[in-house]
Design a protein around this nucleic acid. Structure first.
Length: 425
DNA sequence: TCTGGGGTCCTAGGACCC
DNA sequence: TCTGGGGTCCTAGGACCC
């Protein structure tokens, strides 16, 4: 087995849950199995779209991101459910807990997929045996299907896991690339979307094989550094490591919502901003970070979308501070047209003791900002920062902010977890 | 009856400093 | 008096992914 893999090479798995949200619902309610099921946001509203759907629904042409009304037209007896994120988070924790039984080198990339580096886990068996064992265990303990890709790097593992669904295990070796990868169109590649595929066509590149042999100067001019990277990937080259820490590093935390109807009234819009600010504040606290930069998103009736952001003097976390900054940005940049979506995002996230030091500098050596559109308690605090210093330094570790590694995870636990979560709200 | 909400990474221009 | 780049920060937007 070992000679299959070069001494310095790695063995990477990509584990990808199949139609995750729909599968979790089926695990909860087995009577849903074998039926066309879709999970959709905004079920009661006019703007619902399909988030995930079962394979039975896909047979009717129902697809992710399709508007709900269109999906119902294609499949009139479609079962539609609202997302239960608590359930999905619990299932996700169970899934990653299982993966960590095989190696600590597990990197979650989203709620339903992750990479593993099993190069040094061969005492557990061959890569295929390990993949089969993982797949069986996830099915047995959580009643959830997944596909697994086995390859010498992340890109190829991700590509491989996509090739057999549901419940597939696929090996993709370097030497398979010309036969398996190169005939495909470029937009089949992870990292190439509609726009990039169109651009590539303008220089005569239609397939991954053509991309693999493309002129680098031309690629760089067309796509920047990303062009070079895509050519490397097309040749099966990807040097990124599996990084178990990356899940802890948040770059931004935000919340946005499409309004039930387009709105023009400033007070109504402010109310929305206040509730978004509250959510963002809760999430910042849960992750135990403060935001140095605050941004808003405004989408107008015609779907034209702008983002505006401002770096703040003080890192913030409280909902009043977030709402204030968001309202200021909104008033400064809103053109008065009907608004379809509003969002608030915190960037440049820092931990409380870092924020404490920052605040120390800011409150004693610098003037507070000079453009208070709205005078509130919060903006006064911004000027006379002492209260904020106490607050920023006082946050405790949130016990909910822990990654689950439970090995005794099973469906019953999954149910009870979600039950508790619901009761809390 | 068009098209959600959570993110990441990259680019590019202007301000500002040296 | 007339002249130059380089580097970094901040902001806005685009592309992509799940």
């Amino acid at each position: 087995m070992k000679e299959m893999y070069p001494k310095n090479g790695r063995v990477i798995l990509h584990v990808d849950m199949n139609s995750f949200y729909a599968s979790v619902e089926m695990a909860y309610d087995p009577s849903l199995k074998g039926r066309p099921l879709a999970i959709a946001g905004n079920v009661e509203e006019r703007r619902g779209i399909i988030v995930t759907c079962s394979y039975e629904a896909r047979k009717y042409g129902v697809k992710t991101t399709m508007p709900l009304w269109e999906a119902k037209k294609l499949c009139p007896h479609l079962i539609v459910k609202k997302p239960n994120f608590d359930r999905y988070r619990a299932a996700s924790m169970g899934m990653f807990g299982i993966l960590r039984q095989y190696t600590p080198l597990v990197e979650p990339v989203s709620i339903d997929e992750g990479y593993m580096d099993i190069t040094d886990s061969f005492e557990l068996g061959s890569p295929i045996e390990i993949a089969e064992s993982i797949q069986k265990q996830i099915l047995k303990q959580l009643d959830l299907p997944c596909s697994i890709g086995i390859a010498p790097n992340k890109f190829l593992a991700k590509t491989a896991s996509d090739m057999k669904k549901p419940m597939g295990i696929t090996i993709l070796r370097k030497r398979d690339i010309p036969a398996v990868l190169w005939p495909l169109e470029t937009n089949e590649m992870h990292g190439v979307g509609k726009k990039t595929a169109e651009k590539l066509k303008t220089i005569g590149i239609h397939t991954i094989g053509q991309l693999a042999k493309a002129n680098e100067i031309q690629l760089k001019k067309l796509l920047g550094i990303n062009g070079i990277r895509l050519k490397e990937r097309a040749n099966g080259v990807d040097k990124r490591h599996v990084d178990p820490e990356s899940v802890e590093e948040f770059k931004s935390i935000g919340n946005s919502t499409t309004l039930p109807r387009d709105m023009t009234n400033q007070q109504d819009l402010f109310h929305i901003l206040e509730s978004l600010a509250e959510t963002v504040s809760i999430r910042l606290k849960r992750k135990n970070v403060l935001a140095v930069t605050l941004g808003i998103t405004i989408r107008y009736k015609d779907r034209k979308t702008i983002t505006r952001s401002k770096k703040l003097g003080n890192p913030i976390q409280q909902k009043e501070d977030i709402a204030l900054a968001a309202k200021q940005l909104f008033l400064k940049h809103w053109n008065g047209d009907p608004v379809r979506l509003l969002g608030i995002t915190g960037y440049d996230l820092v931990e409380p003791d870092f924020a404490y030091k920052q605040l120390d500098l800011f409150s004693y050596e610098k003037d507070a900002q000079k453009e208070p559109l709205i005078q509130t308690l919060s903006s006064l605090r911004e000027k006379y920062g002492k209260n904020i210093i106490e607050r920023a330094g006082s946050h405790q570790l949130d016990p909910n902010n822990q990654v689950g590694t439970s090995t005794s995870f099973n469906k019953d636990f999954l149910r009870s977890f979600s039950q508790q979560d619901r009761e809390k709200e």
